[in-house]
Design a protein around this nucleic acid. Structure first.
Length: 1040
RNA sequence: GGGCGCUUAGCUCAGUUGGUUAGAGCACCGCUAUUACACAGCGGGGGUCACAGGUUCGAGUCCUGUAGCGCUCACCA
């Protein structure tokens, strides 16, 4: 075995072995209890980043632990088509070639997106492999593959049939760049420096004007009223009056509505920020503002849409009274129109004032431009229905519900799935609950080409005296829903759904949802047209726990039994922003479609990895890490261990980002600058710390375009010194194993596997191993991953390497029983380490196996071909030998005391010294069976007797005075006095503290007796230490 | 504005129901090429636990308030 572990020499081969043995493939009918996890499918837009690496590592740890515990374990991998995100990256790429999406047919464009998807899906799957993810690759799914598509079609059809999907003209969040609607949670709020413009609207009778305040003057073209609060003192005088809308010339009413905030000067609430800016008159633009839409509905106002889908001013989407003045604005972008309209008001003396105003504006999470509230027809899932929202709330574990939920939510009924979803950490249950309590209907149509196309065919028809004659439209067979098609008739005027016979006058839309494309296509000769839009990506993601297992008919995809075996899954591991986007919808859909069954029993929310300055890692800041780089420099196990150890239950963790100098390979901390927007980033160009004069470009430099990487100044990769911990740990395990193997002869008798180790060191080590198993089991159960990492580090490095291996060095070569213990402990440790560091443990596994069978009494370690399928250690409780633990604790304390003295007096490490031990220390040394001598570098131990040898150092331990002789060649009296004085000062302070406590009557009366007793003992011991040190100092003084 | 989280050693973080003199890793200082490992070993220095009150015999831990940082929901009059 080489002296150090080199990950890249082993990782690929190990993965190969696992795969060819199909270790990660799960099936039905094994008789084993199922344990399943669905991977949150990463978007096919880009390669996996560190956040994915974290989430995948944690899922893999859970998966591997349960596999070793004997569960039938399924970790199901896959990818998400990520509609808008993927479409926009492909469009961006086309744009660089000077092409647009509309230059292609829909089919040709989708072909291009498909190409991108294939490329990144392959990258993602290879990254999963490189990280050691033990997923069942044979069951890899993609949200748009035929299996998932079948589920999406079925789900839409059922929801449509059950009246949970409907179409409506409403204000949506419109992204004018992507030209699609967005769901509420796809809108990000950003602070923007804007203005309040105060615009005068003249009264139609020429008797004056009112002034409205607005941040969006361009929407005034669509104003259909001005509202005033009925309690406003000015309201009465204006009642019944009308206004002449400037530019447009439209005559609009003044309406009275409670919604309007009165200015502080007119009796408004001065603490309301709005009252500071308000004039008391609110321009009402129902087609361009959600609140105005509501006001418009209350007062029967028209909604005049003055914009095209690209956000430009347009007279072709609902605006008809365009006069000569207004014509000039048509065709302008919304930004240009804003400027021009303000200028117009100014030029006409109608701009009263302009005030700066900083406020939050919704931006598209994809194109990052301000979202436009836009009037359009969209499909909605009525998630506010109790069958969906109520079911999600009822799924919450009762003890995690905060207070009680709204009265319109039906109570828990003991139905399947009720109360079964639990959040870790528990505080995230609140996020889930609040989201559902304030839920609004979910807009699911997206005006994109990439995605699941909406399975609805529509036709606009006229109503007639006897209702609509369906047969005349080729839909006669749909008077009653069939297995393959369902009809909805919607009155165009108000969007209300009616029965065909009720459609007696006016226009109606016939919407037919079909289960198959063929059924839809059959309608096309009759004038039906398929909806061009696609579904929100989250619609298919919401079905992930169902669709991946073949729902609605698993046997159709050779997955018979899978759905019942592996749904519900054990846990969903994800980031907290996903609670609203995805967790909620999975719970609603899974429960709805599977008779109340929840998709997962636990939701684990992992922390977000930030850079060293507490900033989110992002491409544009260049502060991210590529997991592939870390695997390359440190190995997958190092990446994994470090991520596990970082995973605390806080909401974010910091990972200081370092840089690798491309000239020297050295890791260094880059120089930083602060950007205009206040981010701390690596300076674009960095100087090599070790190669003077050589330069490099940082990721930020490249991402921001402020520095061009080239041969003179290459791009430097990011890394983090934090991963050294993981790399060092893997190497430590490697070397500990190397040492152990060197001490384990071949051909040990097999009967030793049931023998009970006799030596104190062996019994202690087995006890520590047993304790570590208990700690790790408990931590895994609560998803406290950092504790798993710490427990492994402690038992392997501190207990096994530092103490156990050092202790047994003199004896292990000749003691077969000890060899068996060493063999077994090593075996157990490899198993415990495996879920976190699968590669190094599997690499070592075959070498360790060759050393003969493992196991001792109380710890069965059945042999296995591979570590990954070996059984999880289950030590007998009796292995926790409290006597050995107590003895070893005393041994360690004595050893540390002696080492401390050696270090302080700079005793040559090689020098063997003599201890004169009093009764208690002597007992410890005997109990230690030679370990103290080995670890403290003693050549002899003698009882305390007679006079102190010349030059012997005095020290106090465990309330006793002890001597160390043969320590130095010449006594340095000054150094010795310093040491003793320091000790005296320290003990004196401690004793004062103890005595203060013990002199407190309240303490003696109220503290538990055991605590008081402990304090007394500590005080007495400190007193003995003090006495010993004082004696020594006095003796030294006399001798000097 | 509502909700949530964080503030402990130079850095990154532990600290379970309040109970010894608050811990770890990295970094730093000293010693060590010793036959598992220098990606190491041994020893050391370093914190009035953000601040101010309170409860308690006893507070890093519980309560109240303040400040700073961050996330999230709502809000474009």
């Amino acid at each position: 075995m080489p002296k150090s572990y080199s990950p890249r020499e082993h990782e690929a081969a190990i993965m190969q072995r696992w795969e060819s043995a199909r270790c990660f493939h799960a099936t039905t009918g094994t008789g084993r209890a199922p344990y399943s996890i669905f991977i949150p499918p990463p978007n096919v837009t880009a390669a996996l980043h560190l956040g994915h690496a974290l989430n995948n590592t944690l899922q893999d740890v859970l998966t591997r632990v349960h596999r070793m515990r004997g569960f039938e374990t399924l970790w199901l991998p896959g990818t998400d088509h990520a509609g808008i995100a993927t479409q926009s990256v492909v469009e961006k790429r086309l744009l660089m070639q000077g092409k647009r999406r509309t230059d292609f047919t829909r089919e040709a464009f989708i072909e291009k997106v498909q190409g991108w998807k294939d490329e990144y899906e392959a990258v993602i799957l290879s990254q999963l492999k490189a990280m050691g993810s033990s997923c069942d690759v044979e069951r890899t799914r993609f949200t748009m593959d035929p299996v998932c598509a079948t589920a999406v079609r079925e789900a839409f059809f059922r929801l449509f049939s059950d009246g949970l999907i409907d179409r409506g003209k409403r204000l949506v969040n419109w992204d004018p760049v992507s030209q699609t609607a967005l769901a509420d949670d796809e809108v990000e709020m950003h602070e923007v420096d804007g203005h309040f413009w105060y615009l005068r609207y003249p009264l139609a009778d020429g008797s004056g004007h009112v002034t409205v305040a607005t941040t969006r003057p361009e929407t005034m073209l669509g104003d259909t009223a001005v509202a005033v609060n009925p309690r406003d003192p000015r309201a009465a005088a204006l009642r019944g009056k009308r206004l002449r809308l400037p530019i447009v010339g439209r005559e609009i009413p003044i309406v009275e509505d409670d919604y309007v905030v009165m200015p502080a000067s007119m009796g408004g609430d001065p603490s309301d920020a709005k009252a500071q800016f308000a004039t008391g008159f609110l321009k009402v633009t129902p087609a361009h503002d959600a609140n105005d839409w509501e006001i418009g509905r209350r007062h029967g106002l028209a909604a005049i849409n003055v914009m095209a889908p690209d956000g430009s001013i347009s007279d072709r989407h609902g605006w008809s009274d365009v006069g000569d003045d207004a014509r000039a604005f048509v065709g302008m972008t919304r930004e240009a129109a804003r400027t021009a309209i303000v200028a117009w008001f100014k030029a006409h003396g109608l701009l009263e004032e302009t005030r700066p105003y900083r406020h939050s504006v919704g931006h598209s999470y994809r194109s990052h431009v301000p979202v436009e509230p836009y009037l359009s027809d969209q499909w909605y899932v009525r998630v506010t229905d109790d069958r969906l929202r109520g079911a999600a709330l009822r799924a919450m574990a009762p003890d995690q519900v905060d207070g009680s939920w709204p009265t319109e939510i039906a109570p828990r009924s003991g139905a399947e799935g009720d109360g079964e979803v639990r959040f870790f950490p528990a505080r995230y249950a609140k996020t889930f609950q609040q989201w559902h309590e304030n839920l609004r209907d979910w807009c699911i149509s997206r005006q994109l080409w990439w995605g699941h196309r909406i399975p609805v065919w529509s036709k606009r028809v006229q109503g007639g005296a006897g209702g609509i004659d369906l047969a005349a439209h080729g839909a006669g067979h749909l008077r009653q829903p069939t297995q393959h098609a369902v009809l909805a008739v919607v009155r165009v005027a108000d969007g209300v759904q009616v029965s065909p016979s009720e459609a007696t006058s006016g226009e109606f839309d016939l919407h037919i949802c079909t289960l198959t494309d063929a059924a839809g296509a059959a309608l096309e000769p009759h004038g039906f047209v398929r909806d061009p839009d696609v579904l929100d990506t989250w619609f298919s993601s919401a079905l992930w726990p169902l669709s991946t297992l073949g729902w609605p008919d698993p046997s159709a995809f050779e997955m018979a039994g899978m759905l019942d075996e592996f749904n519900p899954s054990a846990v969903l591991s994800t980031a907290r922003e996903i609670i609203t986007l995805w967790v909620s919808r999975m719970v609603m859909f899974n429960r709805y479609f599977l008779g109340g069954r929840v998709p997962f029993r636990h939701v684990f929310i992992h922390s977000v990895v930030q850079d060293g300055f507490g900033q989110k890692m992002s491409k544009s800041l260049g502060n991210g890490l590529d997991p592939r780089d870390v695997i390359d420099t440190h190995g997958a196990d190092a990446l994994r261990f470090t991520l596990v150890q970082m995973s605390t239950s806080t909401q974010d963790v910091r990972l200081p980002v370092d840089m690798i100098c491309p000239h020297t390979g050295e890791t260094f901390t880059p120089k930083t600058i602060v950007t205009d927007s206040g981010y701390t980033v690596a300076a674009p160009v960095q100087e090599s710390p070790k190669a003077p004069g050589k330069r490099m470009v940082s990721s930020y430099g490249a991402a921001s375009g402020t520095a061009e990487p080239g041969t003179e100044q290459p791009l430097a990769r990011n890394t983090s010194a934090r991963f050294d911990t993981g790399r060092n740990f893997a190497n430590k395990l490697w070397n500990a194993t190397r040492f152990a193997l060197a001490n384990l002869p071949q051909g040990r008798p097999p009967e030793l596997v049931t023998a009970a180790p006799a030596s104190m060191a062996d019994r202690w080590m087995l006890a520590r191993l047993a304790q570590a198993v208990a700690t790790i089991d408990a931590s895994i159960a609560d998803y406290r991953f950092n504790e798993v990492g710490d427990a492994l580090y402690d038992v392997v490095w501190r207990d096994f390497c530092d103490w156990y291996l050092e202790s047994i060095k003199p004896t292990v070569k000749t003691d077969p029983l000890q060899q068996q213990c060493l063999r077994s402990v090593l075996d157990g440790l490899l198993r415990l380490m495996h879920p976190v560091m699968p590669f190094v443990t599997e690499t070592l596994w075959s070498a360790v196996r060759a050393a003969g069978p493992a196991g001792v009494r109380g710890l069965a370690l059945p042999d296995g071909e591979l570590c990954t399928t070996a059984s999880w250690p289950r030590p007998d409780a009796a292995l926790i030998d409290v006597g050995a633990l107590r003895d070893m604790e005393r041994v360690q304390a004595l050893v540390l005391a002696i080492r401390n003295l050696r270090g302080e007096r700079k005793v040559d490490p090689k020098r063997r010294i003599t201890l004169h031990a009093a009764a208690s220390a002597m007992a410890t040394i005997l109990a230690g069976e030679g370990i103290v001598q080995t670890l403290a570098g003693l050549d002899r131990v003698e009882p305390m007797a007679g006079t102190r040898p010349a030059g012997a150092l005095v020290f106090a331990h465990d309330g006793e005075e002890l001597w160390l002789a043969n320590v130095v060649d010449a006594v340095d009296a000054d150094a010795e006095r310093d040491r003793l004085s320091k000790l005296i000062a320290e003990r004196t302070r401690a004793i004062a503290g103890f005595e203060a406590k013990l002199g407190n009557t309240g303490y003696l009366a109220k503290a538990p007796p055991a605590v008081v007793e402990e304090t007394r003992a500590k005080c007495a011991q400190a007193q003995s230490d003090l006495d010993a040190a004082r004696n020594a100092l006095a003796a030294l003084g006399a001798g000097a």
